[in-house]
Amino acid sequence: MNIEVSKLKKVYGKKEALKDINLHLSGNKIIGLLGKNGAGKTTFMRILAGHFRQSKGDIQINEQPVFNNYEQTKDICFIMESNNFYEKFSVQEILTISSKFYPNWDESYANKLLDIFQLNAKQKIKTLSKGMYSALGIIIGLSSNAPITIFDEPYIGLDASNRSTFYDLLLQSYQQNPRLIILSTHLIDEVSKLFEEVIIFHEGSVMLHELSEELEKKHAIIKGRKEEIDQYIKNRHVIHESTILGQKTAVLFDEEKIDDERFEVSKLNLQELFVYLTKERMREIVHSN
């Protein structure tokens, strides 16, 4: 699978939801799509799934447009946090219909997942709790085996234990059937280890697109005496700094290696990095105004 996005723009009335997005996604991997609320993640995923057209720009899968193109959209399974299924159907009816539409549907796996999440096949969608509804979305997404599987906050209402089960199943399913999985989430800490690649959306633009490994290498937390740290971070890309009792901590970005024995050097987790990066971007906007 090869997804090519160039100068993608989506405007709702006067609001620009996506601003000239350029992206290239290829191969089989699990990609984390991160961003604050309203950053444009869902809009991007919905355009990718062919739900609606972009206002400008281009989005192609394997060099073919996505919108209204069954050859491409049949290979996409997009599970949103809500409004996935017609509420008067039963769980079994949804599974049967999904089995028709998704060419790589695995029925026995779907039934197995039904047992794992303890869903009653006869139950109507409208009577499902939020967690059960999310579980059904997860079952469809995983059993579809779609070459592009997209989950947008798929676990609203799921308890920690079931979320953990989902991560295990996702990894297992990916290992058995490698494909492009895009997972949009706010619970970054819980899933960060699954991501091979990370994309951060911020206010309708792609703020960062990196391999997880590179992201790990590209930043550092340094801790030391305030004066020494202040001198060191001059003209460097600082995304966060704090001082307590004369000891200063700074988070540097775009730094490959720090060899200075005066400082204690460590790494952030993805969630902290995401928070600092998006906060820093906000600061830049505030200052530029």
Binding site: A49, G50, F101, Y102
Partner: peptide, 14 residues
């Protein structure tokens, strides 16, 4: 109730 559901399953508008 049918239009969005069917498009979400990947079918074309035609």
């Amino acid at each position: 109730e049918t239009f969005p559901a069917i498009i979400k399953f990947g079918a074309s508008r035609t």
